[in-house]
Every structure is written in structure tokens, then in C-alpha cells.
């Protein structure tokens, strides 16, 4: 019996002004699996995630979670659904007016799942998981390095143990060892908590480590789908060029014209 589909996207379109960014995206993510999305800079990967989160209103298409079309839900219901998705934003998006510990436990505090007095201690545990010392909790985000901010943002995204997790370039800006640690953490979340995840990445090593399935997006369309293990020898000219980082190939040809 095939695994159930947690997230199904069909015909998703979005333009900003006359710039077409998403041009009919079709995607499925199986429950409990991790889909890696690759694609060139500016190809619309972040916009795709924001559409699913309801932060950007798509022009056309459907987004189903557990078989329910979330675009058709009333706003309050959508806010509830959004609360079930953890998101690591590309630039971290930490609240710079709050200390790190409050950032990490923000979602839990908002849902009354932890008392304010107990939050710093709980935050320290999450920080330890992402390789940060307890003392970091008292700092403000502006006092952290870029990589540390990323890890705090990751801790914040997974703190509420959401049903679904989106990672927008989780390992960019981290050293290779920390990148591997974060990959392990992501795998752990997905496998142990049973979350379903979508990760955008430019890091092929990481993509093969964490991904079950993979998809490549180019010019607003999904041009390839397959198992993440097949990324490096997909047989698709565009994917090959991308994953091997070749300057010559079909993608550059498209840019030239």
C-alpha cells in the first residue's frame, strides 16, 4: 500500500506584477518523508514555501494538506493550520527585540504550552540540541554570528514539534561539520517525530543526506522529480548541470536568450 500523501500542490501559479514566478507547480509529499527542492537562485523556491504557509496568496492552483484544500479555509482556520507548520526562514528571521531564549520558545509561549518562568530552561535544552551553549539564551540575536542565528532559528522552528517542517536553506552559512550536525537534527525530527518536511537547499551533500525524494524547480515549473539518491546521476540534463555545478548546459542557454 502506498504511503499517504500529506501535502499535495496542483497547478500553483503566482506572479508579482508582470513577473511570473510560479508557473503551475505540481508536487506531492508523502507523510513522514522529506522532500528536497533544488533550483537556481530566484527560481521561486522561497515563494513556493510562503504560498503553502499562506503568507503569499497564490493566483491559481490548489494546496491540500491531509486532503483538505487549505486555500478554501476561512482565515481563522488557516491560522490554526499554519500553527502546525514549523518554518526555518532563509535569513533566520529571528525577533531582534527579544532574547534568544524567548525566540526559541516563542511558539510554545504563544500556544500556552510552557510557562514563562520555565521557558529559559526549556530553551537551553533546544539550544543544546543545535550545538549552542546555554548562555547563548540570554544574548540578543544581533550578538550572534550568522551561523548561530541559523541554528537558533532552527531550534525555534522545531521547538513546537510541528506536523510539518519547512527548511529554507538550513545549512547555508554553516561550517561543514555544523552542517552535518544540522542535517542529523533534521533527519531526527522527521524520522523520530514523524513530521513531514520540505527542505530547500543548494548543498548537494546535504540534499542526499536528508532527502527521501527530490524535485528541481526551474523558471517556475517542476522539471524533474525522483529519489534524492538519484540527484547526482538523474539523466536529466538540467539537473545534472545544476548538481554538478557546470557552467555550460541547458540552464545557461535559457538565460542567454
Amino acid at each position: 500500500m502506498p504511503a499517504s500523501v500529506k501535502l499535495r500542490i496542483a497547478g500553483l501559479k503566482k506572479s508579482f506584477g508582470d513577473k511570473l514566478v510560479l508557473d503551475g507547480i505540481d508536487l506531492e509529499v508523502e507523510a513522514g518523508s522529506l522532500l528536497v527542492v533544488i533550483g537556481g537562485s530566484g527560481s521561486g523556491k522561497s515563494v513556493l514555501l510562503k504560498c503553502i504557509l499562506g503568507l503569499i496568496e497564490p493566483d491559481a492552483g490548489t494546496i491540500e494538506i491531509d486532503g483538505r484544500d487549505i486555500l478554501a479555509l476561512p482565515p481563522e482556520q488557516r491560522a490554526v493550520e499554519r500553527g502546525k507548520i514549523g518554518m526555518l526562514f532563509q535569513n533566520g528571521a529571528l525577533f531582534d527585540s527579544l532574547p534568544v531564549w524567548e525566540n526559541v520558545t516563542f511558539g510554545l509561549l504563544a500556544q500556552d504550552r510552557v510557562k514563562r518562568a520555565e521557558a529559559p530552561a526549556l530553551a537551553a535544552e533546544f539550544l543544546k540540541q543545535v550545538g549552542l551553549a546555554e548562555t547563548v539564551g540570554e544574548l540578543s540575536p544581533a550578538e550572534l554570528s550568522g551561523g548561530m542565528q541559523k541554528r537558533v532559528a532552527l531550534a525555534r522552528a522545531i521547538a513546537a514539534r510541528p506536523e510539518m517542517l519547512f527548511f529554507d536553506e538550513p545549512t547555508t552559512g554553516l561550517d561543514p561539520i555544523m552542517g552535518a550536525v544540522i542535517d542529523g537534527l533534521i533527519i531526527d525530527c522527521v524520522k523520530r517525530l514523524g513530521s513531514t518536511a520540505v527542505a530547500i537547499t543548494h548543498d548537494m551533500a546535504s540534499a542526499r543526506r536528508i532527502g527521501d525524494a527530490a524535485a528541481m524547480i526551474n523558471r517556475g515549473k517542476i522539471i524533474w522529480r525522483g529519489p534524492a539518491s538519484a540527484l547526482m546521476d538523474s539523466g536529466n540534463a538540467m539537473v545534472d548541470q545544476f548538481t554538478h555545478g557546470r557552467r555550460e548546459g541547458p540552464i545557461q542557454m535559457e538565460l542567454r536568450k
Binding site: K50, L53, G54, L55, A79, R82, G83, I85, G86, M87, F89, Q90, N91, A93, L94, F95, D96, F106, G107, A110, Q111, R156, A160
Partner: peptide, 16 residues
């Protein structure tokens, strides 16, 4: 600043 650095989006993903 919160808008352009996605902090406002982050708020809504954190049940706020």
C-alpha cells in the same frame, strides 16, 4: 524592518 526581514511572517508561523 520586521517586514523586510520576514519577522512578521515568522510571527504568523508561530501562532501569533
Amino acid at each position: 524592518t520586521m517586514r523586510v526581514t520576514d519577522q512578521i511572517d515568522a510571527l504568523s508561523t508561530l501562532s501569533t
